[in-house]
Nucleic acid binder design. Structure first.
Lengths: 214, 214
DNA sequence: ACGTGTGAACCGATTCACAGCA
DNA sequence: TGCTGTGAATCGGTTCACACGT
């Protein structure tokens, strides 16, 4: 339980941890048992130094002169990230994107389960998409606290996003993966990660041009 | 044309530029004509200083004591980002997520148009989703160069992503928005932005926990 | 000798503070 | 006075270099 040293851990370190975990699971499938920082980062655009530094925030886990036991490291990372047991999430906004995500299989590999979806369209309520039942948004306050869910995926139209997000917070949600193209203004204690396709494309356009220009 | 000073511009600055642009378009709809760095950043989790610093990389554009002309600034940012004229993109992999993106309306606001989609499933080829026609991946080499496209959205299964990405590069694609949960290894001259839902959720889980723990 | 773990040095990004213009 | 633009100072993250365990 005791945190070794009180050091601030960069957000990028956490993001990379998730990346390492993804790679390790693949390496495990390929029957690797022991791996070095060099090997694991070879295809990751991350330096071995960076990898070891990232791990060092949470204390030693490898064997000097040997490397890391793959199973060990997977478990270690899962524990750090908090996904060593089932993580229940909800999704709000069952439009095209929301529906697609309800059927996304990649979540399961990492212990994530979407346990309920919400929408305001009466047509959709009661239906099941990808094993997930759709409820009326107005029932969120009743249902969400019961489910013991901490995270929500937000795929509602931009104009409703702020309002729905506030409602989610009042239901006890602590983290939001926001696909709506607006900046959510919520308490600092709520973590928001934004995924905005248009923004990403603009960034890409800039760099694609720049490389061309030299 | 002449770049004012040769300074390195942080990637985060570019990402924020896209954010500013999104906000400005909303402010324009609300009939704002002049705006200060304070006003525009009020709801963006960005400091006014940061905003002005970001802009400063590309030379003066506001009026001291007054602020920024909204129209002016929009045009300025569009030019910087390279989206002041139509940007044609393609999408590869018309699964659930790919289909959802083909119908995503948010792209048009920023001059992005998906001009073609590709898949290997014979069932899908020839169909039209959201005004976009689906072609056989094997025709990419023929079609893509003709279209004059620089960017691609990659929504194929993880196991095909690397191979398809390489093909895209050989067709002249310079930037890839990658939704497949793998790290693509391509020439350094190709820009890749990864969007991995599972990774994002893991990061969220960590921080949601951490806040709780204090 | 090999590979991890980590303090120290370095580098880049953010924040500060203020000069200058409307 | 109000607000921009920007060099200077600060802060934080990455890289380096090496001590230590195997």
């Amino acid at each position: 339980m005791g945190r070794k040293k009180i050091r601030k851990i960069p957000q990028e370190t956490i993001r990379r941890m998730a990346l390492y975990l993804r790679s390790l699971k693949k390496l495990k499938e390929q029957k690797f048992q022991i791996i070095s920082s060099n090997k694991i980062t070879a295809y990751l655009n991350v330096s071995p130094d960076q990898f070891r530094k990232d791990l060092s925030y949470f204390g030693p886990v490898g064997k000097p002169g040997v490397g890391y036991r793959v199973n060990n490291l997977i478990h270690h990372l899962e524990k750090i990230l908090g996904i060593d047991r089932e993580c229940r999430i909800i999704l709000v906004g069952v439009g095209k994107l929301g529906s697609a995500l309800l059927g996304y299989p990649g979540f399961l590999n990492f212990n994530f389960t979407i346990v309920a979806a919400f929408d305001s369209d009466k047509e959709k309520i009661g239906k099941i998409i990808g094993h997930v039942k759709i409820y009326d948004v107005s029932e969120m306050a009743k249902i969400v606290p019961r489910l013991g869910v901490q995270l929500a995926i937000l795929t509602v139209p931009a104009e409703n996003a702020q309002q729905v997000a506030e409602k989610l917070v009042s239901c006890g949600i602590r983290g939001i993966l926001n696909f709506a193209p607006v900046n959510l203004n919520l308490s600092q204690t709520i973590r928001v990660l934004n995924v905005d396709m248009a923004t990403e494309l603009m960034t890409l356009t800039y760099f694609a041009k720049k490389i061309l220009a030299g």
